[in-house]
């Protein structure tokens, strides 16, 4: 004599997924705001040294007042042997040719000039102030940095930036 009537087999109701798009959109907007677009993966592998108090280049990037060049070990191991001490310079994903088995930093000047000519019209800074950011690997020889610096001096591009990984203020 039970008061409760035994019901028939109940099927579990399906989960309401109508708010799923909202959740996903929320995630989407978060990532759109919090991240910046990736540069092309350079053809050289760069493991940056760490540093503190470095300048954030994002505002300069937004005004396209900065060009990046990479200095690291070639990703293709077969090419690594062609370079002295195993480091190569990558300008816009082109690993510089090395006729004599050494680095070729001579291309830096022409590359920077071309870059400067291709800048959008809204960028009004003179070439002296357009930053050239060197992203170099931990072990890259400093002599190479100075070679690049000399090339930049020759074409009067007088602002250089030494990239580091800054973990202090993220």
């Amino acid at each position: 004599m039970s008061k409760f009537k035994k019901e028939g087999r109940k099927s579990t109701p399906g989960v309401n997924t109508s708010s799923l798009p909202d959740i996903v959109f929320m995630l989407l907007f978060f990532f759109m705001v919090a991240t910046t677009s990736k540069e092309n993966d350079p053809t050289v592998q760069v493991e940056q040294p760490t540093g503190t108090r470095a300048m954030d280049l994002t505002p300069f990037k937004q005004r396209s007042e900065v060009d990046f060049l990479y200095l690291g070990k070639p990703r293709n191991p077969a090419r690594a042997e062609a370079f002295k001490m195993g480091y190569a310079l990558s300008l816009d994903n082109v690993v510089q040719p090395t006729p004599d088995g050494l680095y070729n930093t001579n291309a830096v000047g022409q590359w920077k000039k071309d870059k400067f000519d291709q800048k959008p019209a809204r960028m009004t800074s003179p070439i002296e102030l357009v930053i050239t950011c060197v992203k170099a690997d931990k072990g890259a020889p400093s002599g190479l940095i100075f070679d690049i610096r000399k090339e930049l001096q020759n074409i009067n591009a007088l602002t250089i930036a030494y990239a580091v990984r800054d973990n202090s203020n993220i």
Partner: peptide
């Protein structure tokens, strides 16, 4: 297509030739 890490660097000026 995007990355979290910012580009951070020390800006220095090169003396004029």
């Amino acid at each position: 297509t995007t990355t979290m890490d910012k580009d951070q660097a020390y800006i220095r000026s090169i003396p004029k030739k």
